[in-house]
Amino acid sequence: MKFVAFERTLQGTGASRRLRTAGKVPGIVYGAGEPAQIELDHNALFFALKKEAFHSSILEMELGGQTQKVLLRDFQMHPWKQIVLHVDFQRVDERTRIKKKVPLHFINEENSPAIKTDKLLINHVATELEIECLAAQLPEHITVDLGTLEKGQSLHVNDLKLDKNVKVVLRGKKNPVIAAVTVPVVEEEVIAAPVVAAPAKGKAKKNEKQNQK
């Protein structure tokens, strides 16, 4: 994906506020040299952030007539408004080793024996994984094939088919679950017992007198 950025000369809270008023977003590019202060068109960036590939792939940034390869590292949103406040990018090249979270794309779920035969459910325990690899080998997503899952089974990180140069960052977890077969929860309908109204006091006394007779 490609996008255009412009050099930003003015810095500080006041300058950033004026940029946002003018429909721009302040940002920074760091790594492989001196950090560069940049600004981007807000609307273009806002819609780019809605695309999965913008978060998990190497981007081509045009800045000052030159194209640089960068990776989105962070962005800040307004607490309640649909406004991007700031964005961070990292310069990368083929030799840059990076750690990045990438989304998981699940396939063949409907063809698994757990779904097709046993009418069970498959719970997606994780929706993304943090991986470590060279920037040139960064996948946009990781495909997870659920087509063989059966009743009582689960799929773990070690079951994934990854490129030999891509390493999953486990952070102390040995072999976390990615997806697991679960039994649907059946909600039982509770039928309330009929409520018998107590007789009125006057009627109760009348019945008591008749019984005494």
Rank of each mutant, 00 (worst) to 15 (best):
M1G: 13
F3Y: 06
T9L: 06
T9W: 01
Q11C: 08
T13F: 05
R18I: 05
R20W: 03
T21M: 02
T21C: 00
G23Q: 01
V25Q: 09
V25T: 13
P26I: 02
G33L: 04
I38G: 03
E39N: 14
L40H: 07
L40N: 06
D41F: 00
N43R: 10
A44Y: 02
L45R: 03
F47K: 11
F47G: 03
A48Y: 04
A48F: 06
K51I: 07
K51W: 00
K51N: 14
A53M: 05
S56D: 14
S57V: 11
I58Y: 00
L59W: 03
G65V: 14
Q66Y: 02
Q66L: 07
Q68F: 08
Q68S: 08
V70M: 06
L71Y: 04
L71P: 02
D74R: 06
D74N: 14
F75P: 04
Q76W: 01
M77E: 14
M77H: 08
W80L: 08
I83N: 09
V84E: 03
V84N: 05
H86D: 13
V87Q: 05
R91G: 02
T96N: 00
V102M: 01
L104C: 10
N108P: 03
N108G: 12
E110Y: 03
A114R: 02
A114T: 08
I115Q: 06
T117Y: 02
D118S: 11
L120M: 13
L121H: 13
A126T: 10
A126F: 04
L129M: 07
L129D: 12
A136V: 11
L138K: 10
L138E: 13
E140D: 14
H141F: 09
I142F: 00
V144Q: 08
G147H: 04
L149Y: 05
K151R: 13
K151P: 02
L155K: 11
H156S: 12
H156E: 10
N158P: 01
L160H: 09
L162I: 08
D163A: 11
K164H: 10
N165I: 01
V166D: 09
V168D: 07
L170T: 14
L170S: 09
V177G: 12
V181M: 00
E189M: 04
E189K: 11
I191T: 14
I191F: 07
V195W: 01
V196E: 11
A198W: 03
A200V: 08
K201R: 06
A204P: 00
K209R: 08
N211S: 09
K213V: 13
